[in-house]
């Protein structure tokens, strides 16, 4: 019978060369710093965290840059208005007619009341509160002659409503603010207003741009002969917004008020009005904003399409 002797396996010895090589390992292999092993997880976590933060910040800044590239930058008010008017010709005619019905409804819901009208004026003086007497804008009082720039015919088309001295919301349904026929370039039928030689002597908005405030959300966007203002002479503004991927929204949908227009100044028979968006409202950069300025009788005075 065989007897298994496992102790004989213990006589298995490594060659001396193996042992010498193993002993010489420290001379060939440099031991890494103890700090690395001791805090390897913490170091790895910190490095990962820093990397993720850096990537996130980079992506965030990159996205912001993309948004800013979409948003047009205007060097002057005149340039902005020209761009707006050019956009009006293409965009407003095509897209806003479809939304006109909803915009009209929202406008009716947000009629101005007399209590807020004084606030709308923003303390701006009103020289003339008389009602417009003629349908055609009088141009015999141009005070500030233009210097060859392109004047903005922003006068209302007609004023066939019977206005009273007391400020009243329009009794009849106001003219559809989104109808491109109300714009000076595409006047409504029956509108006698034409941008002819009458507008030559009108003041240049760019010339008065230096009156503007540093307030980002307040800018002069138009003017009108003061005598065309009805009632108390206030003007109102309805704001519609079209985002990057959304249809037009009426002002009531997101701003909650139509008191967005204020009379900026009255000078030489002309009333300059500006939009004044509340600071609390968050402007969506890159979105289109359509300003519809109308008087107390609901008559459209002007429409402006702007990027804010």
């Amino acid at each position: 019978m065989k007897k298994v002797n496992f102790d004989s396996l213990k006589s298995l010895e490594a060659p001396k060369s193996w042992i010498e090589n193993a002993i010489n390992i420290p001379q060939t292999k440099k031991a890494p710093p103890v700090f690395f092993f001791k805090y390897s997880r913490a170091v790895a976590f910190a490095a990962t965290f820093v990397l993720v933060c850096a990537i996130s910040i980079t992506l965030f800044l990159h996205q912001n840059n993309d948004i800013l590239k979409i948003e047009p930058t205007y060097s002057s008010t005149q340039e902005a208005l020209n761009s707006t008017q050019a956009t009006q010709e293409s965009d407003v005619e095509n897209t806003e007619q479809e939304k006109a019905k909803t915009a009209t409804d929202s406008k009716q819901d947000s009629k101005p009341d007399s209590n807020n009208q004084q606030n709308l004026n923003g303390g701006a003086p009103l020289e003339d509160e008389t009602l417009p007497s003629t349908n055609k804008p009088e141009t015999d009082k141009p005070v500030t002659p233009t210097d060859g720039g392109t004047p903005e015919p922003t006068l209302p088309s007609n004023n066939n409503t019977d206005n009273t001295s007391s400020p009243q919301p329009p009794a009849t349904e106001p003219t559809n603010p989104l109808q491109p026929t109300q714009t000076p370039n595409n006047p409504a039928p029956g509108s006698p207003q034409e941008p002819t030689e009458e507008t030559i002597g009108k003041p240049d908005i760019a010339a008065i741009a230096h009156y503007q405030s540093v307030h980002d959300y307040c800018e002069i966007i138009g003017y009108i002969e003061t005598k065309h203002l009805t009632g108390s002479g206030n003007v109102y503004c309805q704001l519609s917004k079209r985002g990057l991927s959304e249809p037009w929204l009426g002002s009531s949908d997101y701003c909650g008020a139509d008191h967005l227009c204020t009379i900026w100044m009255v000078k030489d028979g002309y009333t300059y009005f500006a939009y004044d968006i509340p600071q609390s409202y968050e402007i969506e950069h890159g979105a289109q904003y359509l300003f519809i300025i109308y008087n107390e009788s609901g008559q459209i005075l002007d429409t402006r399409l702007k990027y804010l």
Binding site: K2, S8, L9, S11, L12
Partner: peptide
């Protein structure tokens, strides 16, 4: 292996 451990190994 050594002879004495050859078999068991």
């Amino acid at each position: 292996f050594p002879l004495d451990s050859l078999d068991v190994s």
